[in-house]
Structures are given as C-alpha cells and as structure tokens.
Design a protein around this nucleic acid. Structure first.
Lengths: 207, 207
DNA sequence: CCTACCGATCGGTAGG
DNA sequence: CCTACCGATCGGTAGG
C-alpha cells in the first residue's frame, strides 16, 4: 500500500514504506487515469509523465493493474473510515447526516482524481480487489441509508424512500470531484457545508 | 444520424434511414461502451455481440469513433430539446424546475446506457463533436441555473448559490442511470417524480 | 534506468 | 459477410 498524499484527513493502518520514485509513478498514473481513463492510458504515457522510459516503470511497480488497485482500495477504505470518524459519538440523526455528508463531499473536493477513478473504473478493476471495493461502497451506502432511516423513525426527517435519498445524496457529493477547482475561490470546506445542507433539505429535515 | 430506439420521448429533426443491421451494431456498441468503456471495448467485442467478424462491421459503420459520436450527439441534443419541451409555456418557477428535473431524471431512468456513456466518455470523444457536446451540456446546466435564479428572484426559492445547486441537481439525476433497473418494481416516472421533489427541496422551495 | 525485444491485440483495409 | 493481412501500439521481460 502506498502514500497517496491524503494529508491528515484519513486514519488508516500504516502502509509500507515506498520510494519517492514509486510515489511519483502512482501519482502520475492517478492523474492520467482520472483524465483519460484506465484503458485510455498507456504505460508509455505514465512513463513520459515522470520522465522515464516505459520499461523502467517496472523497477518501481508491479503491473498497470496494481496501480489501479492501490488507488481504488486505499480510497474506498478511507471513505469508510472517514465516515466512522465523522459520526462516531454523535447521536442526533440530523448531526450524523450532516457530518457524514460533509466528510464525503470534503473528500471529493480534496481528492477529485481519486473520486473520478473510483467511480468510473470499477469495470477495469480485477478481482479480488474489485469485490472488496464493491463491498466497501455498498457498506457506505447502507450506512448512510441507516442514518436516514433512524432520522425518519425519530421524526427528524420526512422522507419516503431512504434508499433513493441515500443514492441521490451520495452521487451528488461524488460529483463535486468532477467540477471542483480550488483556484475558483471556493474552499473545500464551504462546498462540503453546502452539500451537507442540501442533503438535510433533501431528506425533509423537520424545522 | 441514427435510430436509437428513443421511442416517443424526444423530438429531433428527422434522421437518415439506416439498415436494421446498422442499428444492431450501434446498439451493441452502446451496451458495451456503457459496460466496459469506449477504450475497454474492441471492435471484435462489438462484432461478437452481433454475431459477425470484426471486419464485417465496416460494411455498416464508418469507424469506432463514429459509433461513439452518434450516441453522444444524439443524446446531448435530446436532453436540450426535452428541456425546452418540458418548460415551454410554463411561467411558475416551481413548476418549471419540477418539469425540467423530471424530464432529465426520466431520460436517465429510461436510457441508462446513454447516460453512462455521455457522462464518462467525453475524454474519448474527438472534435468537433466533443466541442458541440460540451456546449450542449453547458447550455443545459445554465438553463437549469437560470430557472433557479428566477425562482430566487421571485421569492419561490431560498438558495445561496444557484450554480452549486444546479450542479448538485443535475448530477443527482444523472446517477439514476447508474442504478435504475425497471425490474425492481419501480417505474421510471415514479423515480423522476421523486427526484423532482428532491430538487425542489434542495433549492429551499418556499412552502 | 536504458535498449532491444516479446507475443498479443488494436482499428481498419483489400479483395473477393 | 468472409479470410487474409496491414502497421501501430499494447503491457511486460531480458539482460545489462
């Protein structure tokens, strides 16, 4: 597992040490996968981006597929652990949903490339990593749905289908990664707060 | 331009007649592009799906890129013309937004493959079609944003950033194409109505 | 980290 | 609609 420059916004088990050069390769691959897609990116493209010849890449990484798997696994695990950290110790459903959506939107504003790749390249991902990523995504969606169901039971939310609402909220937040550019003057935290508000309105948060 | 089996839910200039076999090829390609992506699909895959050898495809179509362009152009134009039809003659901002989102979500429930391809394969699309598709998407987003701005001016909506809201609403609707399966018992019209309601809640529709 | 090179596959054409 | 085939490119290895 590798260093993906996630800064301090994620808590995951320690990863193996990795050379600076390997980090460069993973980072360049991530940018290219996000821009052109996995199948639309060649190892020659990746090599050029880091200033070497294609065969030299294999001194730092195993295969092209391993590059994809690293990003997908790491990001999916980070999403779950950030969700847990966000709602941990919070009982009020309104606050739980607000924090969960805020954390998710924040991730997509900060890590747009990862967001794009995770949501677009599932079909290029090979088992068993593919299955683990699918399970993690499913678990996260279910967790959001349960927050909404809990809020409905307690009368905090007015929503017909918590499942439909969870889909709408999650995809809305994912899309932040597609347009967010920090240089537009908008801060990631502001966007995340806005989307958390959108989510609360969407589930009919009682005034 | 080709027949994409859009039924009667779209109004576009008449398209050229096209052989049934050509329609089959376009349809198979669309399914594969949606499933594996443009670069992840080979012409051999397409040929197998319609029961012929790869070189025979070229008796019906020009190039692989032309297959992508047909879907992208047709779908993008259909989105704009469905928007126009939906809001035409409707003055009330609440009703305008409801109808616009309903039409957009309905399209994505009915045409999940097209939705996936249009939103994922922009980077595989070549100019000049790419530029036209980008302009059409931009125009549609701006049109939705203007409906929201109008509603804010007239006091029907309570929303800080109509631009942010338009992004959230559009992406939420696009995602319907990713999970909607008619056999789950849910009808496309029901989903579309739900998403229209979500959109109105999101912009803080005054009660 | 390089050059040289591997077999496989790509989109597409020729010619019938 | 087929077989035969084209040059280009793919991911990856050998060997230094």
């Amino acid at each position: 597992m590798r260093r993906l420059s996630y800064g301090d916004d994620v808590t995951l088990p320690p990863r193996q040490a990795e050379s600076a050069r390997a980090t460069d390769v993973h980072d360049a691959a991530l940018s290219l996968f996000a821009e052109r897609g996995y199948h639309g990116t060649s190892m020659k493209d990746v090599a050029e981006a880091v200033g070497m010849r294609a065969p030299s890449l294999y001194n730092h990484i195993r295969t092209k597929q391993a590059l994809l798997q690293a990003t997908m696994l790491y990001t999916s695990r980070a999403v779950m652990s950030e969700f847990d950290a966000a709602v941990s110790g919070v009982a009020d459903p309104v606050e739980r949903l607000r924090r969960a959506v805020r954390a998710y939107a924040l991730r997509h504003a900060r890590h747009g490339r990862e967001a794009l790749v995770v949501n677009r390249e599932l079909s290029a991902l090979e088992d068993p990593v593919r299955t683990e990523v699918l399970m993690l995504r499913r678990a996260h969606q279910k967790a959001i749905q349960e927050v909404i169901e809990e809020g409905r039971r307690t009368g905090h939310f007015d929503i017909g289908s918590p499942g439909l609402a969870s889909f709408a909220i999650l995809e809305m937040a994912v899309s932040v990664g597609r347009w967010f550019k920090p240089e537009r003057g908008l801060r990631p935290e502001e966007v995340a707060d806005q989307y958390a508000l959108f989510a609360l309105r969407l589930v009919g948060r009682a005034p």
